[in-house]
Amino acid sequence: MKALYQACENGYEKLQIFRLLGLDAKNSVIQICINETSLIENESICQLDPAKFDTISEYVVLECDWILQETI
């Protein structure tokens, strides 16, 4: 799973893999971003293809990278 996470090309994909890993972000803001990104309602409202449009903040992705590196 870690290799799959690192192979992802955009933040949306990384967040989906991060959620599957079941890791807990100690930072409540990051945890909210992880949880809200997965909601179908958010995807429907935006109407953007997450593979083409990286809507995830770089800060969130970097924080997830750090959490993954520290825990696994």
Rank of each mutant, 00 (worst) to 15 (best):
L23V: 02
E43I: 13
S38M: 11
C33V: 06
N35Q: 13
E41V: 08
T71M: 11
D49V: 06
A25F: 01
S38C: 11
I56A: 02
C46G: 14
A7F: 05
M1A: 15
I34D: 01
F18G: 00
S44L: 15
Q31H: 05
Q31A: 14
K14G: 02
S38W: 07
I30M: 04
A7K: 11
L4I: 13
L23C: 02
K52D: 14
L20I: 07
L62A: 09
K14A: 00
D65C: 05
Q47H: 08
L23N: 01
Y59Q: 13
E70T: 08
E43R: 15
E41I: 11
L39E: 10
E58I: 11
K26P: 03
E9C: 07
R19W: 08
C8I: 00
V29C: 05
E70M: 14
Y12F: 15
Q6T: 06
T37Y: 03
V29E: 11
E36Q: 14
S57D: 15
F53L: 10
E70K: 14
I30S: 00
K2E: 09
Y59W: 13
A51N: 14
C8R: 06
C64K: 01
L20A: 12
A51Y: 11
P50H: 03
V61L: 01
I45A: 15
I56R: 01
P50R: 01
E41G: 02
D54V: 05
E13I: 04
N35M: 12
I45T: 09
N27T: 05
T37A: 07
G11V: 03
L4N: 05
A51V: 07
V61R: 01
Q6D: 11
F53S: 11
Y5C: 02
A51S: 14
L39R: 14
R19M: 10
G22A: 09
L48G: 04
N35T: 13
D24M: 13
N10R: 03
F53P: 05
I72H: 11
T37I: 07
T55H: 12
S57P: 05
C46T: 15
I30P: 00
I17A: 08
Q47Y: 07
C46W: 09
Y12R: 04
L20R: 12
V60A: 03
L15C: 06
S57C: 13
Q69S: 11
N35A: 15
I34G: 01
I32T: 12
I17T: 06
N27P: 04
A25T: 02
S28F: 07
D49C: 08
A7L: 12
I72G: 10
N10Y: 03
F18P: 00
M1T: 08
Q69M: 09
C46L: 14
L39D: 10
L39Y: 09
C46N: 10
L15H: 04
E63A: 15
E58L: 15
Q6R: 13
L20K: 13
T37Q: 06
N10H: 04
E63C: 12
T37S: 07
N27G: 03
E43H: 13
S28P: 13
K26N: 12
L39F: 10
P50T: 04
C64I: 05
Y12M: 05
C64H: 02
C64S: 03
I40Y: 10
I34T: 07
M1E: 11
L48T: 09
K2Q: 08
E9R: 12
E41N: 05
T71E: 12
K52W: 08
M1I: 08
M1N: 08
I34P: 00
L15T: 04
